[in-house]
Design a binder for these strands. Structure first.
Length: 425
RNA sequence: GAGCCUGUAGCUCAACGGCAGAGCGUCGCCCUGUGGAGGCGAAUGUUGCGGGUUCGAAACCCGUCAGGCUCCCCA
């Protein structure tokens, strides 16, 4: 036991049931992305650490990346996020791509942090970005894709909400309070923590950061002002577009949404489960105006968001929104009556596979009871048996596992009978 | 990186200083050609690992490893 090699901490083992969940998420993600015309792509899983150094935030690069030296001595890292790779890919073909580019991706990422509920060191992430258009309406489309996904998995707008803010709006509010540019980072950090700290503690922490009492009071009134968006043309247009897109039920303005990544410049948003059973964002994103120039491209604006598979997976499980798990992808199982009929059973299964059915065949003779129990566990819907009686009459016994009825049909009619049973549900 | 909690059968857990158990699952039988419900029965443990205290340790102490939760950060 103790000598067994454990999986690397924070990595994931996808047993068939978990794999089904991952694929379920993938399918819903793909459907939502494609319904808005986004194209699928992917980047390298390993990148030079320098790619992230500029804009991803110190925490992400220095403490949370799986970094190592390759055999040539270069420092590389398992990708902790996709946006910088995307920016480079776009920049490299900027002259030949057609804009606006609408791209999406679903793949693995790694971050070295403490595994806990909703967070692992290895996770899958949906990324969706639009590049080449800088407008609140483009931002709205991104939010609408996110909302379409939530709706498609059954997270209705009373179960999940998308909170929106705008960095430019906040910057101008901070300017008005005389909060210096150097303190911006500390202040956004402060804002992020507000919901997690007692208000008295939060106040004294704010003063420690060097805000004076007037600035603190001003900050609080900003953060409590849920009508603040009306002062931002961008947000006014955003909310109008969201209404046209039919997703306003999901979206609310919230001045407390800041987001840690440094590259966001305009609209930012985060989706949460409204019951608050998980205090982690389902997805989050925003507009980045300078990222492309930072990796060597011409200035090009983008907007995007990312969703990890862990939080959404926990939520879907908790809310009972997952489809029933069917262990075997084969709805049909062929039993093996005895040694002498094994080849016949194998041949029957093969024949049905050639007709396009997924078919499971028991791999050895065994008591029929055992084989039927196995079929039941695999949630097979139809079980075929060819015993001596059936074989001598050129027949096959077909049992409908959904209602328990069994019939015998001529071998030539087996396919039709099966299809009839499978379609009758 | 810090704090708190937990490691006992495949799983969930009980036993809290005195014979290591239950439920679920698995397997077998009831049922010699048929699943789900039920009945009966069986198998399965260096109590995470190492040391210490004790007549006696799963339990108490120390260390260590692993997991969970929180802080931090974030998908």
């Amino acid at each position: 036991m103790s000598s067994k090699i454990q999986p690397v901490k924070g990595t994931r083992e996808f047993y068939p049931e978990e794999m089904a969940l991952r694929n379920f998420i993938y399918e819903k993600v793909r459907a939502a992305s494609q319904s808005f015309g986004y194209q699928e792509y992917d980047g390298p899983f390993i990148e030079a650490i320098d790619l992230y150094a500029a804009k991803s935030g110190e925490e992400l690069v220095k403490k949370q990346s799986f970094t190592f030296q390759d055999r040539g001595g270069d420092f590389v890292t398992l990708r902790p996020e996709l946006t910088p790779s995307l920016a480079r890919m776009i920049a490299a073909k900027q002259g030949e791509l057609t804009f606006p580019a609408r791209w999406w991706s679903f793949g693995p990422f790694w971050r070295y942090e403490q595994p806990q509920k909703g967070r692992s060191r290895e996770f899958f992430q949906w990324n969706l970005d639009m590049l080449g258009v800088n407008s609140p309406e483009a931002d709205a489309e991104l939010i609408a894709v996110g909302a379409a996904f939530l709706r498609s998995v059954g997270l209705t707008s009373d179960l999940a909400a998308i909170y929106v803010n705008n960095r430019r709006l906040m910057d101008s509010e901070f300017d008005a309070l005389g909060i210096s540019a150097e303190k911006r980072m500390d202040v956004s950090n402060l804002v992020d923590r507000r919901s997690k700290m007692e208000s008295a503690k939060w106040d004294s922490y704010a003063l420690e950061l060097g805000l004076d009492q007037t600035q603190l009071d001003g900050l609080k009134s900003i953060l409590d002002n849920f009508d603040l968006w009306k002062k931002s043309d961008e947000l006014v247009r955003l909310f109008s577009a969201l209404e046209a897109l039919g997703v306003s039920d999901y979206v609310k303005f919230d001045p407390n949404i800041m987001r840690g990544l440094l590259y966001y410049t305009g609209t930012v948003f985060e989706a949460f489960d409204t019951s608050g059973s998980l205090k982690r964002a389902i997805f989050g994103g925003g507009r980045y105006d300078n990222l492309l120039a930072d990796v060597g491209g011409q200035s090009l604006s983008g907007v995007g968001f990312a969703m990890g598979d862990v939080v959404i997976g926990i939520l879907l499980k908790e809310k009972g929104l997952l489809p029933e798990f069917v262990p075997s992808p084969a709805p049909v199982l062929v039993t093996v009556f005895d040694e002498s009929l094994l080849r016949e059973s194998y041949a029957l299964a093969a024949e049905l596979r050639h007709s396009g059915l997924n078919v499971l065949c028991f791999p050895e003779p065994a008591k029929l009871q055992k084989q039927f129990k196995f079929a039941d566990k695999m949630k097979a819907r139809v079980v075929l048996t060819m015993g001596p009686d059936e074989f001598s009459n050129n027949e096959v016994a077909i049992k409908n596992m959904m209602n328990g009825e069994q019939i015998k049909v001529k071998r030539e009619a087996v396919l039709q009978s099966i299809l009839g049973m499978l379609n009758s549900v």
